[in-house]
Design a protein around this nucleic acid. Structure first.
Lengths: 97, 97
DNA sequence: GCACTTGTGAAAAGGCTGTGAACGCAGGCG
DNA sequence: CGCCTGCGTTCACAGCCTTTTCACAAGTGC
């Protein structure tokens, strides 16, 4: 998928062969999102995959980690927005900007 | 129905596999319309489905959201008119332009 | 102890919603 | 045909709700 490679089994995400320094949570989230490209995933769905169980009503963990992930992806791939917000629903991973 | 797919359970409407960025209301309205293709649906009917209850006498919400929906559909599918106005009655969804 | 990660609260930023008002279009009538 | 009227369309905006980002306290492993 172009410049970004995600290798869950190696606990790594590479940009042009260079590994991003993602934390475990960040990587889990990226993997979860990238498993269903172009699909809108709800917070509940993502939370279940990464944290397990159901989020508290006012839990913002998913948002915070999306933000951290975007920051790191943005540094490595300036000008591309891979994770899209769908207001009131969740997030969507789009390999091509 | 060609290039447009509507997947309510995924909170998405796709054009050529790409999700449109519709708001919750817009999607609800599109779903309601597309549930009865080629049938003229009254404002009251649409309002009941999307907002619930009955619209005020001078409520223009349905019209406004039809307009917003048309704008976004028009961007994604130029040259096709999927939502038709029936003067004095309501709107009709027609999958084939 | 140090460096790093994690989750939470809260402030700031941004987007959505419904409404009123202006605008435009179509149909009816003279 | 041109005017009038009523309806539909679109714009602008305030209020509200959601998302984003920051800062921090607690936890973890070296």
């Amino acid at each position: 998928m172009g410049r970004l490679e995600i290798k869950p089994e190696e606990h790594a995400a590479l940009v042009d062969g260079r590994p991003l320094s993602l934390t475990v949570r960040e990587l889990q989230l990226l993997v979860s999102l990238s498993e269903h490209p172009q699909r809108i995933m709800t917070r509940e769905e993502l939370f279940a995959k990464v944290w397990g169980g159901q989020p508290r009503d006012d839990d913002r963990s998913v948002d915070v980690y999306v933000s951290r992930l975007r920051a790191k992806l943005g540094e490595a791939l300036p000008g591309r927005r891979l994770i899209h917000t769908h207001n009131g629903i969740g997030y969507r991973f789009s390999p091509d900007g």
